[in-house]
């Protein structure tokens, strides 16, 4: 089965009503608006499911095909059978979650007792984390519990997260943590 493309809203280029008056020589663009031509006209359209609550509303993401390739607009997906185009205030702000200058864009490291973050590379960060994991795991690994039963676990490392991850990410995440022998594996469902 091919992935079913959604029946997107058909956006026409109908602009006659707005442009007809331009012959009068006035700039009739509404303040702060992009009259006549939709800002989404030349955008790539993809569907998504809102990342906030668990109603599972569909949304359409308009991504610029030119320039920086960033999000132009996100609004409710009218062909989604649950929300039928609507979104709440949080869903309506989805664009600002992604296009947000406050986002982290580089791995950061804070050394012991340091007062600040410093940017580091992925390679450096992941290598160092793997080293720490190994040190702590191997130092705290228990083959047996106090009454001699085989347990093959570490209680020296804990992990929490995440209901914000996709299903597929959740699965590989828990597999890695359990393969390491973690038993303190918890997430949002517990709180």
């Amino acid at each position: 089965m091919k992935v079913t493309r959604r029946e997107f809203i058909q956006i026409t280029g109908a602009t006659a009503a707005g442009l007809a008056v331009s012959g009068l020589g006035f700039d009739l663009a509404p303040v702060k608006s992009h009259a006549q031509m939709l800002k989404t006209k030349y955008a790539k359209e993809t569907t998504t499911i809102c990342c906030y609550c668990a109603v599972g509303c569909g949304a359409i993401v308009h991504t610029s095909k030119r320039g920086d390739g960033r999000v132009i607009n996100i609004e409710g997906d009218p062909d989604h059978v649950i929300n039928r185009g609507s979104l709440c205030s949080k869903g309506a702000s989805l664009k600002q979650l992604t296009e947000n200058e406050n986002r982290l864009t580089e791995p950061m490291y804070r050394a012991p007792y340091s007062k600040e973050w410093k940017s580091v590379s992925w390679e450096w960060a992941l290598t160092k984390i793997a080293k720490r994991v190994k040190e702590t795991r191997d130092a705290t690994f228990k083959y047996k519990n106090v009454i001699g039963q085989v347990v093959n676990r570490t209680e020296g490392i804990a992990s929490v997260g995440s209901a914000a991850m996709d299903n597929e990410e959740c699965w590989i995440y828990q597999a890695l943590m359990r393969a390491l022998g973690l038993v303190y594996v918890e997430h949002q469902a517990r709180i």
Partner: peptide, 23 residues
């Protein structure tokens, strides 16, 4: 400035943003 009825959307057959999003 004030509400412009999302004229660009309406002219292109879309609902105004506030109407479209209302649950």
């Amino acid at each position: 400035a004030k509400c412009d009825m999302c004229l660009d959307r309406v002219q292109n057959g879309l609902l105004p943003a506030c109407v479209k999003t209302c649950p």
